[in-house]
Design a protein around this nucleic acid. Structure first.
Length: 196
DNA sequence: TATACGATCACCT
DNA sequence: GGTGATCGTATAC
């Protein structure tokens, strides 16, 4: 019997929910990256929410620009941008059209592609959005990609629901310039990542 | 057109 | 713990 993967692909409705809910619900989900015939599957372990123009840590706090217009677009699309000239970061656009919000995927855990991981660099951990995107070969070509099509890049639901108790909230990282916004507990991670 | 800076990482002490 | 690498954006002129 074959399992129809289309069934487990997360659809647009999921991404249209409040960003903080999406950020937490994405934990434990699987991020799938298809490169040619190769499939890389990773469990999402860490996310951050960026919500609205009032969020000083968000790129959208400066308003709508050619770069941030993706965040104002339809939920369920990928927002990929480059930082410090070297690293890409992967975000998922959430909520309504014309409201700039997104979830940054900060960490994944590769479960079944160890040979590929070893080939990339043995022992390398995938904590941090820069490393993550380097490993998944995500670049600006995927900016605006529709994550609900089930091709190249998409997200699938976890086998079992993640308990709220296993989710830890914390301050966002690298946004000290955002003044009071930096204290928002908009970073979420699976607690096993911190210990266990 | 020119310039300043960042949702990071690797390497130094 | 602190700093340099390195380039796409935004902003100012």
């Amino acid at each position: 019997m074959k399992r129809r993967s289309e069934k487990t692909i997360i659809g647009r409705k999921f991404y249209q929910q409040p960003t903080l809910k999406v950020a937490q619900d994405l934990l434990g989900c699987f991020l799938i990256r298809k490169i040619g015939q190769k499939i890389i599957r990773g469990k999402i372990t860490e996310t951050e929410a960026y919500i609205g123009e009032d969020d000083l840590a968000s790129h959208a706090s400066k308003g709508r620009t050619p770069r941030t217009k993706i965040m104002y677009g339809e939920a369920g699309h990928a927002y990929v941008y480059m930082v410090y000239g070297m690293y890409h970061c992967l975000n998922v656009v959430t909520e309504k059209k014309n409201f700039p919000a997104a979830v940054l995927i900060r960490g994944i855990e590769i479960e079944n592609n160890l040979p590929l991981l070893a080939k990339e660099r043995a022992g390398e951990r995938l904590d941090g959005p820069g490393k993550l995107c380097r490993f998944l070969k995500i670049d600006r070509k995927l900016n605006g990609w529709d994550l609900t099509t089930g091709d190249k890049l998409w997200v699938e639901k976890p086998a079992q629901r993640i308990s709220k108790k296993s989710i830890v909230a914390g301050r966002r990282i690298g946004v000290d310039y955002a003044r009071h916004c930096k204290y928002y507990l908009w970073r979420f991670a699976l607690s096993q990542k911190f210990g266990a």
